[in-house]
Design a protein around this nucleic acid. Structure first.
Lengths: 237, 237
DNA sequence: CGGGCACTTGATAGTAATCAAGTCCGGTGG
DNA sequence: CCACCGGACTTGATTACTATCAAGTGCCCG
């Protein structure tokens, strides 16, 4: 049920806090203190970390793996709001005021998280204001991304939206490849559709089109090779 | 050119800082100190406070009036990202790292703002960590709203989008009225369209439809009376 | 009272959702 | 190692809806 403590090396060595950017301003001794406050949990692919509407009392920080944050609409559709991977945190809304989660979070693969209790986090922030600034920075980055999403969904053509999401994935998950940039997709077609507000059929069609145009090459269902990044950037405008 | 200092009463009395929620944890003496750091500016309707791409060095806090934050796309369309009114702040992205503004901000009416220089703000935050927490709270609220916007734009029908924006305006600008809630619209039809990613014609049509259904009543171009809020909420789902 | 601008309304065309078959891929079992 | 099975993906046909183009209409202000 995902409730097992994990015993990965990084945690045993009390180093996992070091990896987390919001704690980057702290020294070794402080990190050790934080490591003692942290609870570790593991979730298997498909497991829910948070259910929309649930009351929460901890900050989640991803140590390994990745998750999607999403909402379900009444007519059964799903809108993905964020993708979180190693080093990202979520649940921050509930640390300041008592509030229920406004989205569900599901593991897209085996995912290890560090949990810090609300109370501990609040003490930590009072003691180390730099942490608040780091959190603010991250919130601003998230606002930036959502603002881009809104602009894309509001003004761009469908082809531009698909191109945008491929570029986003290329920057986040892409690896160099002799012929371009290879992406291991974090989402299947339906997931991509739910991320940019389209249907899976439309995503499928537009990706086929991009392949026909020689901009990308699909390799099975999970891998995409970006052959012509410049063309993709032009299409995304 | 909007560069004139304003001399409104609240500013002369050094009280304007008191109105601003992010400074609410400070006492009178501290507020007086802040008031000395603040520069006041006035902008007329239609004037730009910030131009997208501009480097910035101050936090803007609205004392009176309202503004829209928006981006222009290559094909001449506009996407409105935020509406800011009394007590709201913007420009916070540039206080932490040097970054250019990723949207333009324009006054929707005569608008008076307080400016705090980046450097002063950074000192202030170090001295009063509570301010950082208040800013975090506000950023979270803004994330909430954008997440709602993304969900709405991604999954809802056009009628639901129009209903949503009317409800948002009702909560933010609505005033009690014998027959329901009266809204003084902050945006014209085209503005509303640019806020929810539609065309002005479609917004016009859907609003006429809502009027035919007896859900709202239009009163000139700038006023809308919400007659049946429940129906509007049902349509917004 | 008149002019201009924003808004409304109508007709048409284009595009994505939907409905409906197929096809491919990965995994499983023989 | 191969054949088979099921789920994900692709492709096609049709429908529904909104953008676009094009006239009107009405409101506000001088």
């Amino acid at each position: 049920m995902g409730k097992l403590l994990c015993a990965c090396d990084s945690c045993r060595n009390k180093l996992c806090a070091k990896q987390i950017s919001i704690f980057s301003s702290l020294d070794g001794q402080q990190l050790t203190k934080i490591a003692d406050l942290i609870i570790h949990k593991c979730y298997k692919k498909g497991e829910l970390l948070i259910l929309e509407g649930e009351t929460m009392n901890s900050l989640f920080i991803i140590n390994k793996g990745q998750t999607k944050a999403f909402r379900n609409t009444q007519d059964g559709r799903e809108q993905i709001l964020h993708l979180f991977s190693e080093g990202d945190f979520f649940g921050e809304r509930n640390l300041l005021r008592d509030q229920v989660s406004n989205y569900s979070v599901e593991a897209l693969e085996e995912t290890h998280v560090c949990l810090i209790h609300k109370h501990d986090f609040q003490l930590l922030v009072r003691e180390h204001p730099d942490i608040a600034l780091k959190v603010m920075e991250e919130l601003c980055r998230r606002l930036d991304r959502l603002e881009n999403t809104v602009e894309t969904m509001g003004t761009r053509t469908v082809e531009a939206r698909v191109s945008s999401v491929l570029l986003e994935f290329a920057d986040k998950y892409g690896k160099p490849h002799p012929k371009g940039i290879m992406i291991e997709l974090p989402l299947n077609r339906e997931g991509i559709a739910n991320y940019i507000g389209l249907t899976r059929e439309t995503v499928s069609r537009k990706m086929s089109l991009l392949q026909d145009e020689g901009v990308i090459e699909m390799n099975g269902n999970k891998k995409v090779l970006i052959v012509d990044r410049t063309a993709l950037e032009r299409l995304a405008e």
